[in-house]
Design a protein around this nucleic acid. Structure first.
Lengths: 223, 223
DNA sequence: ACCTGAACACCGTTCAAGT
DNA sequence: ACCTGAACACCGTTCAAGT
C-alpha cells in the first residue's frame, strides 16, 4: 500500500523551502514553518540538509539551474551573452531572495556554470586569452550586482507600495534635491520615472560588451 | 564636574556598532553586545536608533561617506571615475559588512552621493543626455556588484584560511574540472592563482568606460 | 536509517518603572 | 528626556528517545 504521505527527501525539503521563500519572503523561511509545511518535526529537516545556509544555497541553485539559457549554435556571441544574462535576470526577478543569495555567494554551484557559459562566449568574441578571465568576470559581476539591487528593491516593496508608485516617489525625491549639491541626479530624475529595470540591465550588458570588443586588440598578451 | 562616562548619543551608538562589526563581523552586532560595550541596557539603544536596520544603514553610511573621493579639477573624467570607484572598493575591503549592506540597499544615503559624483564624470565624458542615466547606473552597479562579491569572499575567510590559500584551493578545483563540461573555466584556472581583486575591479571599470566612450555617439538622443 | 519534539542558547524588540 | 533591565515572542540547532 502506498504511503499516504511521501517520505522526506532532500529534494522535497528544498522544494518546500523554495515555495516558502517565494510566498513568504526571506524572513518566512524558518525551520519551524518548514517543518509544519512538511508535516514533520523541526529536527527531521537536519537529516537532509546540514544547516540553514546549505538549504539556502540549494534553494538558489534549484531556481537558477533551469534559468540557464543554452545559446543556439547560430547565435552571435553578443546575442548569446544577452540571453544568458537575461535568463539570470528573469530568474532573480521571479525569486528575489535568490538575488540576495547570489550577490553574497560566489561559491554557488550555479555560478560556476554561468561563468563557464559566459567565458565561452567571450572566447567566441575573439578576446585574447590573457584578457578573457577579466572580461568574463566583469560580465558576471554586472549580472550579480544588478541581481542584488533588484532583490533589495523587491524587498522594499514587500510593504505594499507598487513598483511604479515607488519609482514615482523616488523620482520626486530626486527632482526635489538641492540643484547645487545634486545637479546630475536632479537632471536624470525624469528618466527614472519611466525606467525599465530589464531594459536598463541589458543596456549595462551592452556597455560592457562594447568595451570588451573595443579593447580586445590591446587588452592582453596575444592568445 | 565632567561625567565619568559620556552620555549616549546616536553618534556614539553608531561608532560602537562600526567597531563591533569590524572586530566581530556581521554576526557580532547584537543589541546585547552593543549594550554591554556601551555599558548600558539593551533597550537604551532604541532611544537613538529605530531598529537594527536603521543602525546598519547608519554604520554603512559612516564608513562610506569619508571614502568618497573628491576628484581634482584637472583629473580626466576617466581618472576621476577610477578614483571614486577605488574609494568605495577600498572602504568595502576594510569593512566587508558594508559591502553586504550596500549590495542590498539602493536607498543608502551614501549611494545618492556616489551616483551624483559618478554622473558628473559621465557628463564630463561627453555622453549625450539621454544615455547618461544608463551609463552612470552601469558604473554604480558594477561597483556594488564587486562590493557584494568581496564581502562574500571576506566572510568565507572568517574561518581562518588565508586569501591566497583560498585562491589556490579554488584554482585547484577549477583546474580539476571535467574538460568536456568546463573548458573555459579550466583554461583560466591559472589566471585565478595570481589574481588581484583590486586590479580585476579596475579592469572591469575600464571595460565599462571603454564601452561608454565607444557608444557615446550613438547611444542616446542628442543632448 | 530516519523521524520526533522538547530543550538550549540565543535573537530583536517592547515596556513598565525608574532618574 | 533619557536610561534600565526584565519579559515576550521568536530564532537555529541539538539530542535523547522513538520507529
Amino acid at each position: 500500500m502506498a504511503p499516504r504521505t511521501v517520505s522526506l527527501s532532500r529534494e522535497r525539503v528544498v522544494a518546500a523551502a523554495v515555495e516558502l521563500l517565494d510566498t513568504a519572503g526571506e524572513g518566512g523561511l524558518t525551520f519551524r514553518a518548514l517543518a509544519a509545511h512538511l508535516k514533520t518535526g523541526a529536527g527531521a529537516i537536519y537529516w537532509h540538509v546540514s544547516d540553514k545556509n546549505d538549504l539556502l544555497v540549494a534553494a538558489t541553485d534549484a531556481v537558477l539551474t533551469p534559468a540557464m539559457a543554452t545559446p543556439a549554435a547560430d547565435d552571435t556571441p553578443e546575442a548569446a551573452l544577452r540571453a544568458i544574462a537575461l535568463g539570470v535576470f528573469d530568474a532573480i526577478d521571479a525569486h528575489p531572495w535568490a538575488g540576495t543569495q547570489l550577490a553574497m555567494a560566489a561559491t554557488q554551484p550555479a555560478m560556476l556554470r554561468f561563468f563557464e557559459s559566459i567565458g565561452r562566449q567571450v572566447q567566441a568574441l575573439g578576446v585574447p586569452a590573457g584578457a578573457q578571465f577579466t572580461a568574463a568576470s566583469a560580465v558576471l559581476q554586472h549580472i550579480l550586482g544588478v541581481g542584488g539591487q533588484n532583490a533589495a528593491t523587491a524587498r522594499a516593496f514587500a510593504g505594499g507600495t507598487s513598483r511604479t508608485e515607488h519609482l514615482a516617489t523616488t523620482a520626486d525625491v530626486w527632482a526635489g534635491l538641492d540643484p547645487g549639491d545634486y545637479p546630475f541626479t536632479r537632471a536624470v530624475a525624469e528618466q527614472l520615472r519611466d525606467h525599465d529595470d530589464r531594459e536598463q540591465f541589458l543596456a549595462g550588458i551592452d556597455l560592457i560588451l562594447a568595451g570588451i570588443v573595443t579593447l580586445r586588440r590591446i587588452a592582453g598578451p596575444a592568445g
